[in-house]
Design a binder for these strands. Structure first.
Lengths: 254, 254
DNA sequence: CGCAGTTTTGAGACTGATCAATGCCTGTGG
DNA sequence: CCACAGGCATTGATCAGTCTCAAAACTGCG
């Protein structure tokens, strides 16, 4: 029996897949009728979790896979003494929990940063998806490969970029992801995380992260106050981070 | 037209899939006749590359996917000024090049560390695999998810572990992977890479990597001389790295 | 024998970590 | 409406793990 962790509740109001808000977002690809039908059938429900909820826990098994419908989450791993590494941030359209479906055990945890709405897929039906809907199966591989790319980039940052490069890079990257999702407004975006999240994502200490952020503010590249992040100079940021902008093609999701 | 980069040649002698050496290795799962037949058909040939050959290049596209039949390789990314981050090492049974099949462009490069034998799969037939062999499609997802796990672990190391922890961890990890493949002998294994590869994999400088290795030797945990790596004390190494041994189930490959 | 690549060692510099306060907001209870 | 607590952000001072530079010692090889 699966018991919902505290902070997680079935969503009161659920949309049919055909009305899924993600479908309206130009960041995502379209579905044909047959696919939509299958996904509707695959989906077992929606749930809402408060900010700060542990959605998936390392070493545990999860009965479900999730697609984020709205809100932020992050994947992380802990060392025994409490050191934490945030592996990456997850946004609407991102798929979480594939690990446990494939290996029967998570090797990382996932926590929500905001109130979050998740679309639930029972893992035992994943096989069925591979069997009958190879386009969707391919999409799942696509998502896994994309995650790998993100991790490659993060590893490059943490391993070889300096503090100021890392910070500029991740801020710009997050900003671009949000922009693609239509979650920005005139250079501004809501960043629901704290500085210690950034530090943990970048392998830096909180203090040094703070000092470096201040430096970026003094350089008039960014402003970040009360959860609102603002890119003041894309150019300056991109130059520090040596960031390459690319406009992504519509992407799949499940 | 695809022109083979220098250092790459078609293998002179090629085994049919039914005699694939990987099949004899207990690390890998078995195939049934139908699968074997499909894979045999999917496979377009084998090639051999010298040590130090760039097998796949960032920003390029590759017409093929590869499974390593024998030898070592590594995936890496470069920064413009030459800083390099090795993302991970690839051993026999590992699958490389999925990225370019999915996104039409590699976002990392791959280089051989030893002479390497590759099994070649044309990317345009990947779709066919998804269509007609969902078990194999699932295996590809399995491989992608496994890669993600490895990267998660590497990111944790580089972001949050100290130099000595990182080094102990990666050495033990590589040793265990080789052991699984039957490539170790009484605590000894061949490590065909140089110290600067380790440094680049761990986000450390060459000098500091060297000093830390020496420290591990003085602590009588390891010995590493002339490409031969020896674990002298699993216990000591595991304690420093806080490493958890797990015996893995037979894994898929293509 | 001599070169080229690699490993090893020492010295000194510096990025980023740790420690310790202080300040700032926001929500809560009186 | 104020006092206070708790969570974050900010700052200064000091420390240390790692880096860079430089040179010497090895190793394998033509």
């Amino acid at each position: 029996m699966q018991i919902s962790p505290p902070g997680i509740k079935p969503a009161s109001e659920q949309l049919p897949c055909s009305k899924c808000l993600l479908l309206k977002n130009k960041a995502f690809r379209n579905f044909n009728k047959k696919e939509l039908e299958f996904v509707q059938n695959y989906k077992s429900g929606e749930m809402v979790a408060d900010a700060g909820t542990t959605l998936l826990l390392e070493q545990n098994n999860s009965a479900h896979l999730y697609t984020i419908l709205s809100g932020w989450a992050f994947r992380y791993k802990l060392l025994e003494d409490g050191r934490r590494q945030i592996l990456n941030f997850a946004l609407p359209g991102d798929f979480i929990g594939l690990q446990s479906s494939i290996f029967n055990e998570m090797d990382h945890s996932v926590e929500s940063l905001t109130e979050i709405v998740l679309c639930i897929f029972p893992r035992e039906k994943l096989w069925n998806l591979y069997k009958n809907h190879h386009e969707l199966a391919f999409d799942i591989t696509w998502l896994a490969a994309r995650e790998e790319r993100t991790l490659d980039e993060n590893l490059l940052s943490v391993g070889r970029r300096t503090a100021i490069e890392r910070i500029s890079h991740i801020l710009l990257n997050l900003y671009c992801r949000l922009e693609q999702l239509g979650m920005t407004n005139k250079g501004k975006a809501l960043f629901p995380f704290k500085q210690h999240h950034l530090a943990d994502a970048l392998g830096l200490s909180l203090v040094h992260t703070n000092k470096t952020l201040k430096k970026l503010e003094r350089m008039k590249a960014i402003r970040w106050k009360n959860d609102t992040f603002e890119v003041i100079s894309h150019k300056a940021l991109a130059k520090i981070a040596n960031y390459e902008f690319k406009d992504p093609a519509p992407r799949p999701f499940i």
